[in-house]
Computed example of a mutant assay.
Amino acid sequence: MNDTAPLLVERHGPVALLTLNRPETRNALSGEDLFSAFETVLAALDADTDVRAAVLTGAGSAFCAGGNIAEMRDRTGMFSGTPDEIAARYRAGIQRIPRAFARCRVPMVAAINGPAIGAGNDLACLCDIRIASPQAKFAESFVKLGIIPGDGGCWLLPRVIGASAAAELALTGDTIDAERALAIGLVSRVVAAEDLLPQALALAQRIAANPPQALRWTRQLLWQARSGTLDEALEAAAALQGHAHQTEDHHEALAAFFARRAPVWTGR
């Protein structure tokens, strides 16, 4: 493991632990190296059938503080140039992260150890399940800076917490604590800081105990359902179910059920 990489990867059996590794910037989402790291790492996870689930967390005291405010102030990096140039940099920069998540079929648990602000809140919403420590704070705070969620937050957030709650967060820019995040469904549980990573990894291991192909197909359907119609969801489910019924793991699941034993998955 390269300890200087912007996104660290550590294996725990069938679970991959991903750690944003820029504590000096509170894990701000900026720079070609980080955008490329997300693309490379998530593509590698998707290609590795031995990986059945993943956990994403942040190094240091923050999960992810969002965009680099200093670069915004100085109008450098992705925030420099004309409106058209900035738009092009968003497309070629931070917007690669949500696209990489959409392509990756590995279920993802966010272990939110501290503030998840702006693009950091949206990054948490890209994960399938979110667990927070009491130190976590959340804000869809773009409007406070006179900008909008340029990384897809207005698509992501309503699908996680509903239209009204998402509008309240996005239009006020208010910061909420972990307990409020739990109440509105932004996270599924709040646990003590020392228990956060162990519980996130344990949840990922429970996910990973299931057949790998079925996991990836289920995650794929969950993502497609965010924007598709019922008819589209039913058609996709029928097509994938046809393949699922022919897998060795499905046959093994049935055999194990009737034999009252634990199944052994092969991923085939």
Results as ranks from 00 to 15, higher is better:
residue 36 S to V: 14
residue 105 R to L: 11
residue 62 A to W: 10
residue 96 R to N: 02
residue 81 G to C: 06
residue 79 F to S: 00
residue 45 L to A: 10
residue 41 V to R: 09
residue 103 R to N: 15
residue 100 A to T: 05
residue 116 A to N: 08
residue 37 A to R: 04
residue 104 C to I: 05
residue 86 I to S: 03
residue 94 I to T: 10
residue 70 A to Q: 15
residue 60 G to S: 01
residue 61 S to L: 13
residue 37 A to W: 12
residue 99 R to D: 00
residue 85 E to T: 06
residue 69 I to H: 11
residue 41 V to K: 12
residue 49 T to V: 14
residue 72 M to R: 12
residue 116 A to I: 01
residue 61 S to R: 15
residue 68 N to E: 12
residue 35 F to I: 04
residue 34 L to F: 03
residue 106 V to I: 14
residue 43 A to K: 10
residue 84 D to Q: 14
residue 115 P to M: 10
residue 97 I to S: 04
residue 77 G to T: 02
residue 49 T to G: 06
residue 57 T to L: 09
residue 115 P to V: 07
residue 60 G to T: 06
residue 70 A to S: 14
residue 99 R to C: 00
residue 63 F to A: 05
residue 57 T to D: 05
residue 96 R to T: 00
residue 88 A to R: 07
residue 38 F to C: 00
residue 87 A to W: 11
residue 91 R to T: 14
residue 109 V to P: 01
residue 48 D to Y: 01
residue 68 N to F: 11
residue 110 A to D: 06
residue 70 A to H: 13
residue 84 D to T: 15
residue 104 C to L: 03
residue 103 R to K: 09
residue 46 D to G: 10
residue 35 F to V: 08
residue 81 G to I: 06
residue 110 A to P: 08
residue 102 A to C: 07
residue 91 R to I: 11
residue 104 C to T: 03
residue 62 A to K: 04
residue 61 S to V: 12
residue 90 Y to N: 05
residue 94 I to K: 00
residue 102 A to H: 14
residue 117 I to W: 13
residue 42 L to G: 03
residue 97 I to P: 01
residue 93 G to F: 09
residue 112 I to Q: 02
residue 55 V to L: 12
residue 52 R to C: 09
residue 64 C to S: 15
residue 93 G to Q: 04
residue 43 A to Y: 04
residue 46 D to C: 13
residue 55 V to M: 04
residue 64 C to E: 00
residue 119 A to V: 07
residue 103 R to S: 14
residue 71 E to D: 11
residue 69 I to T: 15
residue 86 I to P: 01
residue 96 R to G: 01
residue 91 R to Y: 04
residue 36 S to A: 15
residue 38 F to V: 02
residue 35 F to Q: 09
residue 40 T to W: 05
residue 50 D to Q: 15
residue 79 F to Y: 13
residue 61 S to E: 11
residue 101 F to G: 07
residue 75 R to N: 10
residue 102 A to V: 01
residue 57 T to K: 04
residue 38 F to L: 02
residue 102 A to N: 13
residue 58 G to T: 10
residue 78 M to A: 14
residue 109 V to G: 13
residue 64 C to G: 08
residue 115 P to H: 07
residue 72 M to Q: 11
residue 93 G to S: 01
residue 42 L to K: 03
residue 59 A to F: 01
residue 114 G to Y: 05
residue 113 N to T: 01
residue 68 N to T: 05
residue 92 A to G: 13
residue 97 I to K: 02
residue 115 P to F: 06
residue 73 R to D: 15
residue 63 F to H: 08
residue 116 A to H: 07
residue 103 R to A: 15
residue 110 A to S: 14
residue 118 G to W: 08
residue 58 G to F: 06
residue 53 A to D: 12
residue 118 G to Y: 09
residue 72 M to N: 11
residue 62 A to F: 12
residue 56 L to F: 10
residue 80 S to R: 00
residue 88 A to T: 12
residue 38 F to Q: 11
residue 70 A to K: 10
residue 41 V to Y: 01
residue 77 G to S: 10
residue 111 A to M: 03
